[in-house]
Simulated scan of single mutants.
Amino acid sequence: MTLDFNFLIDTFFVALSGVPVALLITVVALLIASPIGFLLALTRINRIPILNQFSRVYVSFIRGTPVIVQIFIIYNSLPLILSALFEKFSIQMSVYDINPIWYAFIVFSLNTVAVLIEVFRSAISTVNKGQLEAALSIGLTNLQAFRRIIIPQTLVVALPNICTTTVNLIKATSLGYAMSLHEITLKAQVAANVGYNYVEAYIDIFLVYLIICSAVEHLFKWYEKRLTKYKIASA
């Protein structure tokens, strides 16, 4: 079997056109999941009743089930729930007209929250509690203490794991094809359907994700160097 290099080159740019969708899902999921994950991590550390148990069960459930299963559950069940609500409140809108990217935002945000809870929980635990007490003793509020002292040091420790989470999230967006989402994988597969050039299509998908993930890793390494001053301060 020989590779069709013309198709390989053409489809690479087709797959590349799906990058904005993959990155949009990644950014939105991180923006939604980061504050929620941080707050739920605090409930784990401080052992707040009910919320602590909820966080533990939530993390176990989400991390214990495949992302593709979560996609099928939400993508198939949420329209039924919305349809019932629309009918009950006489909302003249078809649930099937909703862009599937909204379902992707929900699925990947929920999944990322579970990961970041554990990332932040382990990172916050490394910060000496005496620093918070010292900040409060000089008149800072809890919010000021966290914003100026705790969070910067937490980011230094958590950044490598946040980088891994981001890279895994970008790769997980390839499952968006199950929601008919026009991201990298689906676009390459559709292009391959005409001449059955699936090997070339998957090579293109591999290369596109490799480029994106490598770029994200380098970006995080650059940002980690910028946070070195906090690492020195917390040493």
Rank of each mutant, 00 (worst) to 15 (best):
R226C: 09
M179E: 02
Y58K: 05
T2S: 14
A145K: 04
I71H: 07
I68S: 10
R44E: 10
F54R: 03
M179W: 01
A235R: 13
D204P: 05
C163S: 15
I211Q: 09
L40G: 00
I98Q: 13
N46F: 11
V57T: 13
R63W: 03
Y202W: 15
D10F: 04
K229S: 15
R148Y: 15
I232C: 04
A15V: 01
I45Y: 08
I74G: 02
Y196F: 13
I25R: 02
W102G: 07
V19K: 01
G139E: 07
L159N: 07
A192P: 03
I98M: 12
I74S: 04
N161L: 10
L30G: 01
E183A: 01
P20T: 00
I81S: 08
S180D: 11
A215I: 15
K129N: 13
L227K: 07
L42E: 11
A15F: 00
R147W: 08
L39A: 15
V19N: 00
L210Q: 03
Y196P: 02
I9D: 07
V67T: 12
L42T: 10
S234C: 10
Q70V: 03
F13P: 00
S125Q: 14
C213V: 12
F72K: 00
A41I: 03
M1H: 12
L175K: 06
R56W: 12
L80F: 11
I71S: 06
S109Y: 05
I91P: 12
R226Y: 12
